[in-house]
Design a binder for these strands. Structure first.
Lengths: 346, 346
DNA sequence: ATGAAAGCGCTAACAG
DNA sequence: CTGTTAGCGCTTTCAT
């Protein structure tokens, strides 16, 4: 009925419980012969360690928490997969934790979360990872964490992180549009409280400047990382006296909204207007035409962060490391049409 | 540093640990006056019960597992949200568990999962929930579970479930197309090992028969619940000597593929061809035109299943109950064009 | 209505 | 290299 315990194995193998514990946890100090015998007994009995007991007894529960405040389902799943890949490999458990990054008690909430389950540490994703006040408190609480954040270079602020160069990736996307011959390029921005938004805007501006194109305010539309804002923002761009010939949506959901807006306005993508996204979510592949975008390996990023966290928990120091999303060119971007040929809006 | 324990509260409040335990767990047998004092101390100290200790000590860990084998990210997130809503409300924990429904050791894997964390029970989603052999084993292991499955009526097989009437919903979708005047309606099917696939096909056939339209083999295309199969399947339909004027994709991802295929073939949706999906995933809202679909409240369904499970764990018997996804009409479906007017394929 | 004692299954800290 | 002794923080069981 109940599960097999350490003692069951110990008795059957004729050793102490502690020895079984040592073998199961891969400690070195066990004679190969003994280890062999224990392992066989474990196999034979189908013993599986009880995670609760281990966690309660030990100094931590061999489980990490993945903290997020993000409306994007794909992103969450991708992160979960990456974290799971690392956790499965390292024999750690995983707890997913949606939270409110703007709550005044953020750090205290997270501390309670950690204490309740004796979590070993936290992987913090944006925008939680950008909340410096909370980070300082967590550090003061003695809770290990690794951040994932948007930055062009290693922040080197004493807190471990994996940094993603959104700026460079945005630069690459806009450069791609410029190289195709676009000059008027609209920018549909995402929420201001994500640091990534500023980085992506910076990449956009840098690219324009590098090509000697003036940055125009009317081509930069505010919004959030959602479809509807992409739709509305694109319509505003189309309504300009001189509309852009290309649009950079700051994530794929925004770009999908822009694509829908174009189609609803009778514009043909990419012939009448080019559209690029950011993220490489399934959205970008499942539209027609498929979206040019920047491949952001959320799973790989989170997997690395999780491995860093575990290393840190095990007392190993780890260097921060960076990712740069890579440009993926698909059908939604093409050279602009010469003006006189452009089809009239309906 | 460390968290506050039951004993801390007990000492401060001048009662025994057991009394604090009783108060925290909402047991009746405590004098209101005592309860009040304990509650105040809990508040004051910011005490949060340690879930590991509770789980280890008690007969189960007040945590349920949500088991899935499903490639669809939106679906998983929706389910997770529903389960979380129930768990938060009932003060239960949640463990997400991807698994391989075709593994020979499925039941044993799940048993190990339950034992390792002393889970209180499992919510099983399709297709795991349809694996009768595994279900019988789980029952024999004494593991409580609630299934979510596709069925037109209560299976009443002794195992608790929430059943979703895919057949009726598919019937409603195809009826909608028929009422618009469509006669040749293509069906893009999903994977055969999902019982829902058979149900949806049945709904399709029933609707046609009810309207006296013969069921044609060449209009029914096999595939899986993925974009690419929707794309390919739709192209095969368009290539028929007499292509359908409407297509029912068995989920939104398939329908999105069909939509892309139509657009890539220069067909205008819905004027040249109507397309309907199933699921009401964000896909269906984020395409252009947005997709007619059947709203399947995965979150609500899983929330109900989770509540049923907890009730069952607490020793209360619960009736099985059903959901029927409801038709959502959007821009992707319209009456067929009279034949002579239909635009030539490019 | 409340408390005392005895674990849950494991690991930490110390022996040997 | 291996074993012993104490707990981890809570709930169970049985008293009172």
């Amino acid at each position: 009925m109940g599960a097999i315990t350490l003692d069951d194995v110990a008795i059957k193998a004729g050793v102490s419980a502690k020895t079984v514990s040592r073998v199961v946890n891969g400690e070195r100090s066990v004679r190969p012969q003994t280890r062999e015998r224990v392992l066989r007994t474990v196999e034979q009995l189908g013993y599986r360690p009880n995670l609760l007991a281990r966690g309660l007894s030990g100094s931590h529960a061999y489980t990490v928490g993945l903290v997020y405040d993000n409306p994007n389902a794909y992103y969450i799943i991708a992160m979960q997969q990456g974290a799971l890949a690392a956790c499965d490999d390292l024999h750690f458990g995983l707890q997913m934790r949606p939270c409110n990054a703007r709550a005044a008690t953020l750090a205290e909430d997270l501390r309670d979360f950690v204490h309740r389950s004796r979590l070993s540490g936290l992987v913090l994703t944006t925008p939680v990872s950008e909340h410096m006040v909370a980070l300082r408190k967590l550090a003061a609480f003695g809770i290990p964490f690794v951040r994932i954040l948007s930055a062009a270079r290693n922040p080197d602020d004493g807190y471990a992180c994996v940094f993603v160069d959104d700026r460079d990736a945005a630069y690459a996307i806009v450069s791609h549009l410029l190289q195709l011959g676009h000059v008027r390029i609209g920018l549909l921005q995402g929420g201001k409280h994500h640091h990534a938004s500023a980085e992506r805007r910076k990449g956009y501006k840098d690219a324009l400047q590098h090509y000697g194109i003036p940055v125009r305010k009317e081509l930069m539309i505010d919004g959030d990382y959602v479809f509807d804002d992409g739709f509305r923002g694109a319509r505003r761009l189309f309504d300009l006296a001189e509309p852009p010939t290309a649009i950079f949506g700051c994530n794929d959901e925004i770009a999908a909204g822009a694509l829908a807006a174009a189609q609803s306005a009778g514009l043909h993508v990419p012939y009448d207007v080019s559209i690029a996204g950011f993220e490489d979510s399934p959205f970008s592949r499942h539209s027609w035409p498929p979206l040019t975008t920047a491949r952001q390996r959320a799973d790989a990023i989170v997997e690395r962060a999780t491995r860093m966290l575990v290393a840190q928990i095990n007392g190993n120091t780890v260097e921060n490391s960076g990712f740069t999303p890579e440009l993926v060119v698909r059908g939604s971007t093409a050279p602009p049409r010469p003006k006189r040929q452009r089809r009239q809006r309906q």
